[in-house]
């Protein structure tokens, strides 16, 4: 059984208690592939490389099967500023 979007969400939720989390399955049927946006206080005071390491570590178990992972955003709550809807 492969890794699902729900697996990824639950691993990130429990490791990072994110205030915003978006996981998009980008596999199109060719194997586990995801794009994620995550906003968490755990990123406070950490540069981008360290933030990505935290995400990778949270998904260590899933990474064995994930074919491609793209971390589009790894921000702190104060950086997170959702784009207003286009008028």
């Amino acid at each position: 059984m492969g890794v699902t979007k729900e697996n990824v969400e639950s691993a990130l939720n429990s490791a990072l208690s994110p205030s915003h989390l978006q996981v998009i399955d980008t596999s199109g049927g060719c194997g586990a592939s995801f794009e994620i946006e995550v906003v968490s206080e755990k990123f406070e005071g950490k540069r981008l490389l360290e933030r990505h390491r935290i995400v990778n570590a949270a998904l260590a178990e899933q990474m064995k099967e994930i074919h491609a992972l793209s971390i589009k955003k790894a921000q702190t709550p104060s950086q997170w500023n959702p784009q207003p809807a286009q008028a």
């Binding site: 981008l48 490389l49 990505h52 390491r53 990778n56 260590a60 491609a68 793209s70």
Partner: peptide, 24 residues
């Protein structure tokens, strides 16, 4: 300590994967 490729090294130090490189 990075699970995927590509991996970019600059001046002997690991810089990051694709997402970090694009951002930078």
């Amino acid at each position: 300590s990075w699970p995927t490729f590509p991996q970019l090294y600059i001046d002997g130090e690991f810089f990051g994967g694709c997402d970090i490189t694009v951002e930078a």
